[in-house]
Amino acid sequence: MSIFRVKAKARKGSTDVKMMAKHEMETGQRKGKDGNLIPAKFLDTVTVKHAGNTVFEANLGTAVSKNPYLAFSFAGGVKGEELEIMWTENTGANGSETGAIK
């Protein structure tokens, strides 16, 4: 299941990428209805690769908002090519998915 929505647009030799993950980014500091702390569960690393090269790499903390939004741009990229997105969670869960450059 993919959690990222990716909008990548190639223009003038570079690609602008805006992506948003559907993720709660639980900080581990909130209390649930039963009064106990809800354990932390957040995305801690997000890496984006284009044609085998890393173009984006972020380490995230719990201060990043729920449904994290990340925007960046890199040189290169042509319409129709694919971006590979890899993420890991602090819980050890991880995933990889793709997004197309438009």
Partner: peptide, 19 residues
């Protein structure tokens, strides 16, 4: 809150949203 690496070819220009 967050740390972004800047690989060669990537602009040092990032946006995000924080708590």
């Amino acid at each position: 809150a967050a740390q972004f690496m800047v690989p060669a070819g990537t602009d040092a220009d990032f946006s995000t949203r924080v708590r």
